[in-house]
C-alpha cells in the first residue's frame, strides 16, 4: 500500500487531526445547553446583557438573559434522531463553490475529516484535480455531496436510512443503514464512502450518543457522506469545510433568503446575482439530479 510508505512523515498531522476530531465529539456529548448564548461562558445574569438563541423557527434571535432560563436538555439518541430527520423549517440550503479561488489548500478536507471521525482515505468532501480539456490547464474542484433535489441514492435505499429533509439536506441514519451500498453504486458523483472497518477512534466514541446531523459516532458497516454539517447549521454556523477555507472558495446560505455568506471573508451576497453574474453551473445537469451545490467557473473572464 502506497499509503504506508509516507506514514511516519504524516504522523504529527494525523495526531493533530485526531485531537480535533475528539474535541468535536466531546462538545456534542452528554448534555448541552440548548441556546447558543451560553457558549460565551462569562455572560453574567444581570438584566440587560443579551444572549443569542434559536427560536421555534430556528432563526437566531437575541433575548435578554433575565428572560431565559438555561434548560439543560439531556441529548439522548431518541431526541437526536427525531431532530435529525426533521430538518430546519423554512430553509433551503445551498452551497456555491467558486472554482476560480480554489488553490488546493485542502483545509476543507481536513476540517471535515476531523469533525466527522473519518479516516484519511474517507472523504465527505474531496478536492479533485480536473482536466476538462486535453490541452487545457487543470483546475481544482472541491466535490462535496451535491444534496440533489432528485437524489438517486435516496431512491434506491431499501430501508429509509438515507433521506431528504425539508431543508434540502440529504442525510444518513447510520443506525438504520444495513450496509447494502446500493446508494454508493447509485450516486454518479461518488460522494459516498463506506466504513469498511471499525471507524477511526471507535473506542473513544463508544459512549457518545449518535448525532445523525453530525453522523458521529461512525459505525462499522454503514455508509457515510457529507451532511452539509447539519449540526452546525442548527447552531447558525457555517459548515466545517466552509469556515475552514482560507481562500474564500465557499459561499453557503439559504435559498429562501437569497443570501449566501462567504466562509472566509464573511461577505454576504445575493445568491441569484452571484449565480447569474458568474455563469454558474451544476455538475452533470443532464442526469436530472438537480444538485444544490453550484459551481462558478474556474477562470474569470
Amino acid at each position: 500500500m502506497a499509503e504506508k510508505s509516507n506514514a511516519p512523515r504524516r504522523k504529527s498531522r494525523r495526531e493533530f487531526l485526531r485531537k480535533l476530531g475528539t474535541t468535536g465529539a466531546v462538545s456534542i456529548a452528554g448534555t448541552s445547553l440548548l441556546f447558543a448564548g451560553s457558549k460565551t461562558g462569562n455572560s453574567d445574569k444581570t438584566p440587560g446583557s443579551k444572549v443569542k438563541m434559536l427560536d421555534q423557527n430556528n432563526r437566531l434571535v437575541e433575548a435578554d438573559v433575565s428572560q431565559v432560563s438555561p434548560v439543560s436538555v439531556k441529548i439522548d439518541a431518541g431526541y437526536l434522531n427525531k431532530k435529525g430527520r426533521k430538518g430546519l423549517p423554512g430553509r433551503k440550503f445551498v452551497m456555491v463553490v467558486d472554482l476560480a479561488r480554489c488553490r488546493n489548500a485542502r483545509k476543507c478536507m481536513k476540517a471535515c475529516q476531523g469533525a466527522h471521525q473519518l479516516r484519511p482515505e474517507q472523504h465527505h468532501i474531496n478536492v479533485l484535480e480536473m482536466y476538462d480539456e486535453e490541452n487545457g490547464a487543470s483546475y481544482f474542484m472541491p466535490k462535496p455531496c451535491q444534496h440533489c433535489d432528485n437524489p438517486n441514492c435516496v431512491t434506491v435505499c431499501p430501508v429509509d436510512a438515507t433521506f431528504k429533509r425539508e431543508d434540502g439536506i440529504v442525510l444518513i441514519d447510520n443506525e438504520r443503514c444495513i450496509g447494502c451500498r446500493f446508494c454508493i453504486a447509485a450516486c454518479p458523483y461518488s460522494a459516498r464512502t463506506f466504513n469498511w472497518a471499525e471507524p477511526k477512534d471507535a473506542e473513544k466514541y463508544k459512549d457518545v450518543p449518535y448525532d445523525m446531523e453530525l453522523n458521529v459516532p461512525q459505525k462499522k458497516g454503514t455508509v457515510t457522506k457529507c451532511a452539509f454539517s447539519a449540526d452546525r447549521l442548527r447552531e447558525g454556523k457555517l459548515p466545517y469545510c466552509v469556515s475552514a477555507c482560507p481562500n474564500g472558495v465557499y459561499y453557503f446560505g439559504d435559498e429562501n433568503e437569497d443570501l449566501v455568506t462567504n466562509g472566509t471573508t464573511r461577505e454576504t451576497v445575493r445568491l441569484s446575482k452571484l449565480l447569474k453574474q458568474n455563469a454558474s453551473y451544476t455538475l452533470m445537469p443532464e442526469l436530472g439530479t438537480k444538485p444544490r451545490v453550484y459551481y462558478l467557473p474556474p477562470r474569470r473572464s
Binding site: 500500500m1 502506497a2 499509503e3 478536507m109 482515505e121 472523504h123 474531496n126 478536492v127 479533485l128 484535480e129 480536473m130 466535490k143 454518479p188 458523483y189 461518488s190 452533470m284
Partner: peptide, 11 residues
Amino acid sequence: PYYPIQNVPER
C-alpha cells in the same frame, strides 16, 4: 466513475 479517483490509496 464520472469523477476521477483521487486522494485515495493506490489499491
